[in-house]
Design a protein around this nucleic acid. Structure first.
Lengths: 191, 191, 191, 191
DNA sequence: TATGAATGAGTCTTCATTCAT
DNA sequence: GATGAATGAAGACTCATTCAT
């Protein structure tokens, strides 16, 4: 009989534990918001003793930072699916709406991201997530239109998803269509 | 002999005190964010004894709720200035940009409003503020364009101001111009 | 029957409580040393709830500082008794030995003072006590001899009391006599 | 083939490791004081894994005890240098002042020794260090003067070095000269 | 034998809320 | 009515010690 049989618990798995705590933090963040995360909530969610959270991360702030990094990284991966789905798509407009819709439907996740987005205004360290949306979405859309339109569309999308998320209403596909048409057909103003 | 002799201070002014506390709460909220408001901060800011804050409001949460109502009401008044300034204006585009710019420049206030906006996603009671932006801004803009464009512009504005607020960068006037031109000149799609 | 009858507890006596906490801190300091004081020990000794200690003093460090100030002030008063007893005395030598002896006999208090004295080497705030012995004892002795002898005697006394305190042996009266004679009779070296 | 192949590091040297830990403990003690020593600080300083500190010493208290023994032993050696330097010296007074001065200048070490000295008043086991100063210094000085003067000088030296250490001021050479002259020239009192 | 992951007791501190005055 | 003293629950964090590996 092997010694290292996968028994009930894989014991002594520091890396796994670390990740478990980070994942729990992301979940708790999504549920209660940045403002109300506590070691206790995280420990309970991760099913680890209270001391473990501070053993792996020197401070709560640091743990939150790491968790936010995780969110950022997930967001980047998420945006990569946007990229590839748009690439494969035959109907840009519909696919984009689908993607935004899907994003909004994972509501607690979306709330978390907007919370972090706004919280970044007070807390420097949270900025990376904001930057993803501010910079990478326009870049992504830039493959399909000029940069000015891409930026405008990104801003519009952001506003529209924020509205959907906060109101709980479904994503406004028609609004997106309208904006998209507007941005694409207009002769660029001289200004 | 009058009761309300003007002594050193106009004492016994419960209503005034109540309002003072609410105003202080709004200020503190704007400065430190919802997460970090305390009775002590409020009392210090309002220059009232600690006990007064709990005397006038049963719980901190209740006080915050009232303060948020106040923010909503101030926002409504604020939008009224948008209405009147746009009415008086000879250059809609410029005036609108001025207004958005000015809004964004009162940064801590703007952060607070977006915080509340996003928090509304978790907490029913905070929704009224979100509703102001979601419903009243389109209505206001609807005086100058068709409702579809007004809604789109409102959404765009929201996204654009959010970006300015979180990034700390100045409001993107050219982006607004572009969106405005786009929304106004495009033949509405059939869809 | 009077309302304010001194019942079991004199309630709501903030100043009294403050002093009770300070006194308890001095006691605990004397018993366990600066290194091991905790809020809990102090609260238990003062018979007040844990929260009271932090309510009256923002930090433990601050509380210790105040307690040390109290020790300093007591030391100063204590030295005043030295002054007056020496003034009244017909036998300077004997009286001085009596005083030193008495000081040493209140052992835990004396230990505390030497502890603070030494701790001052690491912690700026504790210096005032050290200064009392460094400056005021020489000044006091200076009434009876030239300043050089007074300083030397003060240093000797300090060393001698330290030895008595740490060894638990009685104060070495004969050693003091010897030092005193030595310092007083010698023609001052030019050097 | 030899067992103890000189690989990267001379491994498996339990005694060496033990001593490394003790030495590190003495260093850390000198730096942060008895109150703030931790296993972690010691392990880091000794560049050994955390577990090693508890592997070689059952408890932290025990490790500190051993380290204090080490300090005592070092002090004894240190005094041996006093002995030999005084023996070789042509100018007793100057040499003694040099020695005291040098002692005081290694300030963190001196603070540690006085800390232990005073702590001995509370903790029996720390007494050996106190005894070194209390007994051995007078014995050492006794080679140059009668025992009464030697004892008095030892006490004076102790007080003077304590003052220098706690105040951070340089050692008072003139004070020592004065005391020395006084103790040596005075006709011994009858008493 | 040796290690570093693990944890729970205990530290200081903050604060909403209560309530005697 | 008004206040500020009071307190206990909860927060973040530290660390000696244990023990699986």
């Amino acid at each position: 009989m092997e010694k290292n049989t996968p028994s009930k618990k894989a014991k002594r798995d520091p890396e796994g534990r670390r990740e478990k705590i980070i994942a729990a933090t992301v979940e708790v963040l999504a549920e209660v918001g940045v403002a109300k995360v506590t070691h206790r909530l995280i420990a309970a969610r991760a099913q680890v003793p209270l001391g473990a959270t501070t053993y792996y991360f020197p401070t709560l702030q640091e743990l939150i930072r790491v968790a936010v990094d995780e969110v950022v990284s997930q967001s980047r991966q998420y945006l990569a699916t946007w990229t590839s789905e748009l690439e494969r798509s035959l109907d840009f407009r519909k696919t984009l709406a689908d993607l935004a819709d899907r994003y909004v439907q994972d509501r607690s996740r979306a709330i978390l991201e907007y919370e972090i987005y706004v919280a970044a205004a007070r807390t420097e360290e949270l900025d990376p997530l904001a930057r993803v949306w501010r910079d990478e979405v326009p870049a992504l859309l830039g493959r399909y239109m000029d940069s000015r339109a891409a930026k405008a569309l990104s801003v519009f999308l952001n506003g529209s998803m924020l509205e959907a998320v906060t109101s709980g209403l479904p994503f406004d596909r028609q609004g997106l269509d309208f904006a998209l048409e507007s941005f694409l057909n207009l002769p660029v103003p001289n200004n």
